[in-house]
Design a protein around this nucleic acid. Structure first.
Length: 805
RNA sequence: GCCGGGGUGGCGUAAUGGUAGCCGCAGCGGUCUUAAAAACCGCAGUUCGCAAGGACGUGUGGGUUCGACUCCCACCCCCGGCACCA
């Protein structure tokens, strides 16, 4: 039998037709029911789209197409996140210029994306490396700057000795290595641009409660923001300024037996007694070396030395020796702690090592060195008996406030966003350094500050961007005084490009504004955002910050960019991430060429639940491919009988409506795998039926398949005589009254074990079922004349006869 | 260490208190064919049994229940995130 499926010509035909008719172009100004279906735009690597891209775009497209058939005007744009270190490093590696490479990659990506058959509106696309786009990225920077959200500071920043650039905290992995190249990250002090994300810490945190996002994603953000409530407490030092510490557990203050300062706390050396100073100085030097070498994994360290000096406990007046130790970090809280060895693991370890006393102040089953659960204060003077941590925390904080030595305080892990990159492949930061005027913004009318073509774009490694090599770029005049000036030679972080691209899409063809106010009011915030959880704390947090800032500055009238966010899963190969080094990268093009985009989409989504991690299985695509051929065979069968109408049997109507129901429930819940299984079951049923296929069956299949196999669905729909396009038809509705079974199988169990079954009319009542069950010969054999003590009947399902002993 | 997700046939998975293994892959047997492929039909958790049928079976151990993959407790393993955060 010849295959009825020539996917190449079929898919090419419909893709051409969609383009001619502009099926996916949305009249943004007029659309009555806007639905902004966004998916994270890809970074156009040299390898082309990978299976993960194909998977997530297919899933997000199914969502968009389904919403369209439900009557929404779905705007589904796609673009290219093409600036960044990825591209630049690759260009360095292959010895070509990134601007050339990216043009090729973008063209290739676009071709691949078109082949996938998604309903992308290509009339509104973005490429972050296009001056028409990054002009507005620069505008965004200036706007944030003028609005008080950008500032320069000399900071110890994370520096990658391999990529020779500054990294954001988020780009440093837990083991202290560079997210991109794996080199051990070090520290370096440079003058940097920062964006004041800390201005919105509380809102970024609080808004999460009411955002309709994947819970997992929200959790990651909460974690990253890292809010801790506690108190700042001053510990006086005789003849000196007090030491201020931060503690989340002020209720344990009576258990404080010593103090610890971070090695890079500004007062560590100064506080050391003359006798201890030489030893302290040596220790601080070593500690600095360890920190710069990026030894972040040196956990549980009890390394430290005494300063030979005491602090005074503010409530008991006891003398507490002061130490400096690796385990206290300068970057968190005040960089100094009160150590409570009885109730903190690290303090406990340090106390053991240095023979320091521990005083238990909270009762509890847990041993020393544990915070444990709730308990009652002991050894805490007039506070004994208070429940800890609460309300003891508030009571003791209040006492400290009264004593003038403390105040309630909240700290966060979230830091301001460093955006300066001493690299080439990014939008130049639009700032000018003038000797007399200082740092001056580039006037808006001078944007874009074009990224010059530089032959040698290797990083200098001096802390300056390669743009410093280009004198024409570097030297300019001050827009304020007209005097000689230099441009900022850093480029901005790629995440700045992607922090606002969703605002740009609807206005992508406008060169007079970054985003048109009216279109923005109509289409934003984004209705539905599909993306990977790897961006839970970077892109998604930055986007929220930018939106809040732009709202505060009057450019937007909403504060959250993504109304609904859903994280998708990823595709792995035998349990491991696909990567070139593992040699398990699957090239999707081959699959599409051989089986077609429809089969490939179907296959990827059939692999398992869309939100989860799924295993790619090479041969798995055969099933979905066969399924498509079976559907087309049914269509051919129907066509062969053209003219003779076949009435749909009640049986087939039931199967069909069940299928509609299942697909309708599963699709919006993103259970694409079970939706596809339901369609397979229906097709199986049709084939088993053997009789002439009713037209309704194929009409329904065309509609249900439309989001999943957009080309195939069009073909079926057209051949059935339906009006173009199937994607503009309303989603079918299941008729509940047709779905119910007439007959059901009721399992008969004895003591929970299946022993026989009954086939009865649906809805048979419990006592009838019990009677029928007891009459079954096999059941009577098992009962051996005994009478069940109890009988449990689940109508239409099960009868359980219970015998004791 | 902390937080989240997960562990079911050879494989991807389905079923979230009521017949465990739906749907699919791979496999095996058959039909068609000169042959192979494709297509189509059938078999298929493990085990005992000629069969009828039975026993066992959802990471491990306990518990709740007439009934547990599903709920509770403890533990083991895998994946992801965070990590001297006081």
């Amino acid at each position: 039998m010849t295959s009825p499926y020539d996917h190449r010509s079929l898919e090419a035909k419909w893709q051409a037709r969609w383009q001619e008719t502009g099926l996916y172009r949305v009249d943004l100004a007029r659309a009555p029911r806007p639905y902004y279906n966004l998916m994270m735009f890809p970074y156009p690597s040299a390898e082309g789209l990978h299976v993960g891209n194909m998977f997530s775009f297919s899933g997000a497209d199914v969502h968009g197409r389904y919403e369209r058939m439900r009557g929404f005007d779905v705007f589904e744009p796609i673009g290219f996140d093409a600036f960044g270190i990825h591209s630049e490093n690759f260009a360095l590696k292959v010895g070509r210029h990134p601007s050339e490479l990216i043009a090729t990659n973008v063209a290739r990506f676009r071709e691949q994306l078109e082949k996938l058959g998604a309903q992308f509106d290509w009339s509104k696309t973005v490429d972050t490396t296009d001056p028409a786009y990054y002009r507005w990225t620069q505008w965004l920077f200036l706007t944030l700057w003028k609005g008080g959200f950008a500032y320069r500071a000399r900071r110890n920043v994370k520096w990658c000795p391999q990529d020779l650039t500054v990294l954001a905290d988020e780009q440093v992995l837990a083991d202290g290595s560079c997210e991109r190249c794996g080199a051990q990250v070090t520290e370096r002090e440079l003058q940097q641009w920062f964006l004041r994300i800390s201005a919105f810490t509380d809102r970024l945190l609080e808004n999460l409660d009411s955002l309709n996002w994947s819970e997992n994603t929200k959790l990651l953000q909460r974690h990253w923001i890292g809010r801790s409530q506690g108190a700042l407490i001053d510990f006086p030092i005789p003849g000196d300024d007090p030491i201020r510490v931060f503690s989340t557990r002020p209720d344990t203050i009576f258990g404080a037996t010593f103090m610890v300062l971070a090695p890079d706390h500004p007062r560590t050396l100064e506080l050391a007694s003359p006798a201890a100073r030489p030893e302290v100085a040596v220790f601080l030097e070593e500690a600095a070396r360890r920190r710069i070498a990026g030894q972040r994994s040196d956990e549980g360290s009890t390394r430290g030395v005494a300063l030979g000096r005491d602090a005074i406990h503010p409530l008991t007046g006891a003398a507490l020796p002061i130490f400096t130790a690796d385990y206290v970090l300068s970057g968190y809280g005040t960089g100094a702690i009160m150590a409570v060895p009885a109730h903190d693991q690290r303090d406990h370890g340090f106390a053991l090592e240095h023979h320091l006393p521990a005083v238990e102040v909270v009762t509890g089953k847990e041993g020393p060195g544990t915070h444990g659960g709730a308990g009652v204060l002991i050894n805490s003077s007039q506070f004994n008996g208070l429940k800890s941590p609460d309300p003891a925390r508030e009571v003791i904080t209040a006492a400290l406030v009264e004593a003038g030595s403390g105040q309630a305080h909240v700290t966060y892990k979230l830091r301001d966003w460093g955006i300066s990159r001493q690299r080439y492949w990014g939008p130049p930061i639009p700032a000018i350094h003038c000797h007399s005027c200082g740092v001056v913004p580039v006037p808006e009318q001078d944007l874009p500050v074009l990224l010059p073509y530089i032959e040698d774009f290797r990083p200098l490694g001096t802390g300056e961007s390669p743009l410093a090599r280009d004198p024409d770029f570097l030297h300019t005049t001050c827009p304020q005084c007209g005097g000689e000036a230099r441009r900022d030679t850093d480029v901005s972080d790629t995440f700045l490009d992607s922090s606002w691209y969703y605002l740009r899409y609807p206005s992508a063809d406008r060169d007079d504004v970054p985003f048109d106010p009216e279109l923005t009011r109509k289409w934003l915030p984004v209705t539905y955002y599909d993306g990977g959880n790897e961006h839970a704390v970077l892109h998604l947090l930055y986007s929220r910050f930018v939106t809040m800032a732009l709202e505060q500055l009057g450019y937007l009238d909403f504060s959250e960019p993504f109304t609904e966010f859903r994280a998708h899963g990823m595709i792995v190969m035998s349990g491991a991430k696909m990567s070139k080094s593992r040699g398990n990268v699957v090239v999707p093009d081959e699959y599409i060429a051989r089986f077609g985009a429809d089969a490939f989409r179907l296959y990827l989504l059939y692999l398992g639940p869309y939100p989860e991690t799924l295993n790619f299985v090479d041969s798995g695509i055969n099933g979905p491919y066969r399924f498509i051929i079976q559907v087309l065979r049914l269509l051919e069968q129907l066509e062969a009988r053209s003219g003779t109408a076949t009435a749909e049997s009640a049986e087939l109507a039931r199967a069909r409506h069940r299928c509609i129901q299942q697909v309708t429930v599963d699709t919006p819940e993103r259970k694409y795998n079970t939706a596809i299984a339901a369609m397979m079951i229906f097709v199986k049923r049709l084939r088993e039926d053997g009789g002439p296929v009713p037209k309704e069956a194929l009409e329904t299949l065309a509609l249900l398949l439309a989001p999943y196999c957009p080309h195939l669905a069009e073909e079926i729909w057209e051949r059935l005589g339906g009006p173009y396009s199937v994607h503009q038809q309303p989603w079918p509705t299941a008729d509940e009254s047709l779905i119910a079974d007439e007959e059901v199988v009721v399992v008969v169990c004895i003591n929970g074990k299946k022993r026989d079954q009954l086939v009865v009319a649906a809805g048979t009542d419990s006592s009838t079922l019990e009677g029928l069950a007891l009459e079954l010969p096999r059941i009577q054999q098992w009962l051996e004349g005994r009478v069940p003590e109890r009988v449990f009947v689940v109508p239409d399902r099960q009868v359980n006869l219970v015998l004791t002993d």
